[in-house]
Amino acid sequence: MTEYKLVVVGAGGVGKSALTIQLIQNHFVDEYDPTIEDSYRKQVVIDGETCLLDILDTAGQEEYSAMRDQYMRTGEGFLCVFAINNTKSFEDIHHYREQIKRVKDSEDVPMVLVGNKCDLPSRTVDTKQAQDLARSYGIPFIETSAKTRQGVDDAFYTLVREIRKHKEKMSKDGKKKKKKSKTKCVIM
């Protein structure tokens, strides 16, 4: 069974824990209790493949930012979460993405942009803004509501699919490099 290491990042209060708990335990946590770091595991079937999701729910508070490099190193894919009623959390996505790329030393890291709290009427981040940002990053965008469960499975499952595509691409690139290195030079 394939294991996928997913990391949920975003500013404090955007609903990272609520999304994760909704996926794992099928219930909505409405009281806000700032996370330092929590880890969850769940076995699911995605596109006919049974897999184990190892999900790291991270601290959004700035005082825990020193811990970010460590979990970013171990993560295979990242859910970059903002709240649709919090423009600052949307603007912060850029910083999370840049930090992930720096730590992973790669421009090509599996990510999904997630606009959470889409059940709320007080939207300050337009869907088109988020779609445009995701398009500019070359990553999928999904709106979710941890409260109603809308888009929750889709967000995590899409990230797994992005990781699969990335692994497939990397193995193809690896095979191309191996083929090239088999060419021999004969000096007579």
Rank of each mutant, 00 (worst) to 15 (best):
M72V: 09
F82S: 13
R102Y: 03
H95L: 07
V81T: 07
P110L: 02
G115S: 06
L120G: 14
I84G: 15
F82V: 10
E98I: 00
Q99K: 07
R123S: 13
Y64L: 06
K104S: 13
I93V: 09
A83D: 15
R123N: 13
K117H: 15
K117C: 14
V109S: 03
L113H: 02
I84K: 13
R68K: 07
C80Q: 02
E98F: 01
T74Q: 14
R68Y: 05
S65R: 04
L120D: 10
S65L: 03
R102M: 06
Q70P: 04
Y71I: 13
S122T: 11
F82G: 15
V109T: 04
V114K: 01
M111G: 00
F90D: 04
I84F: 13
L79E: 00
E76D: 15
S106Y: 11
M111E: 00
N86V: 02
Y71L: 14
Q99D: 03
M67R: 04
I93G: 01
G77C: 05
M111R: 00
Y71M: 13
P121K: 08
G75S: 15
Y64K: 10
R102I: 08
K101E: 09
S106M: 13
R123K: 11
G115Q: 03
I100S: 01
D119N: 13
I84W: 13
Y64P: 13
M111H: 00
L113P: 00
Y96R: 02
V81Q: 06
D126I: 05
T87P: 15
E107A: 10
T124G: 12
R68S: 05
G77F: 03
G77N: 01
I100H: 01
V81K: 00
D69E: 13
V81D: 01
G77M: 09
V112C: 02
N86K: 04
R123F: 09
Q99A: 07
V114L: 11
Y64I: 03
K101T: 08
V125C: 11
Y71K: 08
V81N: 04
K101I: 07
S89E: 09
K104D: 04
L120I: 07
D108Y: 10
K117W: 14
V112M: 06
M67Q: 12
E107D: 12
V103F: 15
E98A: 04
K117L: 15
D69Y: 02
V103Y: 15
K117P: 00
E63C: 03
L113F: 13
V109H: 02
V109L: 04
A83P: 15
L113V: 09
L120T: 13
V81G: 03
V109R: 05
S89F: 15
V81S: 06
M67C: 05
V112L: 09
N116Q: 14
A83L: 02
Y71A: 15
Y64Q: 12
V114T: 01
G77D: 00
G75C: 15
F82I: 08
D119Y: 04
Y64G: 13
F78I: 13
M67L: 10
D105T: 06
S122Q: 07
H95R: 13
I84A: 15
F82C: 14
N86S: 09
D126F: 07
V103R: 11
M67E: 12
R73Q: 12
G115W: 05
D108M: 07
K104M: 09
D69M: 03
D126L: 06
H95C: 08
D105Q: 13
R102T: 07
M111D: 00
V112A: 01
V81H: 04
K88W: 13
E107I: 12
R97F: 15
Y71N: 14
C118W: 09
P110W: 00
H95I: 05
D105M: 11
K88I: 12
S65V: 04
E76C: 15
L79K: 00
E107F: 13
I100G: 02
N86H: 04
E76V: 15
Y64W: 10
R123H: 11
V112Y: 02
Y64T: 13
V109Q: 02
K88S: 14
D126M: 06
D126C: 07
E98W: 00
G115D: 02
H95G: 05
H94W: 05
I84D: 15
P110I: 02
T74L: 09
R123C: 12
S65E: 08
K88Y: 07
Q99C: 05
I93R: 00
A66L: 10
D119C: 10
L79T: 00
R102A: 10
L120V: 12
D92R: 05
Y64E: 10
A66Y: 08
V109G: 02
Q70A: 07
P121R: 08
G115N: 03
F90E: 09
E76S: 15
G77L: 13
A83K: 07
R97M: 15
M67W: 03
R97N: 05
V109F: 14
C80E: 01
K88A: 12
I100Q: 00
D119M: 05
A66E: 12
V81L: 15
G75L: 04
T124R: 08
F78G: 00
V114A: 02
D119S: 10
F90R: 09
V103L: 14
D108V: 06
I100K: 00
C118H: 06
F78H: 01
T74M: 10
S122M: 07
V81M: 14
L79S: 00
D69C: 02
Q70F: 12
Y96Q: 04
R123G: 14
G75T: 13
I100R: 01
K117F: 14
D126H: 05
V109E: 01
R68Q: 05
D119E: 09
C80D: 01
A83Q: 13
D119H: 07
K101F: 07
S122H: 11
K88N: 11
R73A: 13
Y71C: 14
V112T: 00
F82Y: 11
V112S: 00
K88M: 08
S89A: 13
D108G: 06
P121S: 13
D105P: 07
V114F: 07
C80H: 03
L120S: 12
Y96K: 02
V81R: 00
N116I: 11
Y71D: 12
V114C: 04
V112G: 00
E107L: 12
C118E: 08
P110R: 02
T124Y: 09
H95F: 06
R68F: 03
E76K: 11
D69T: 04
Q70D: 13
R102W: 02
V103Q: 05
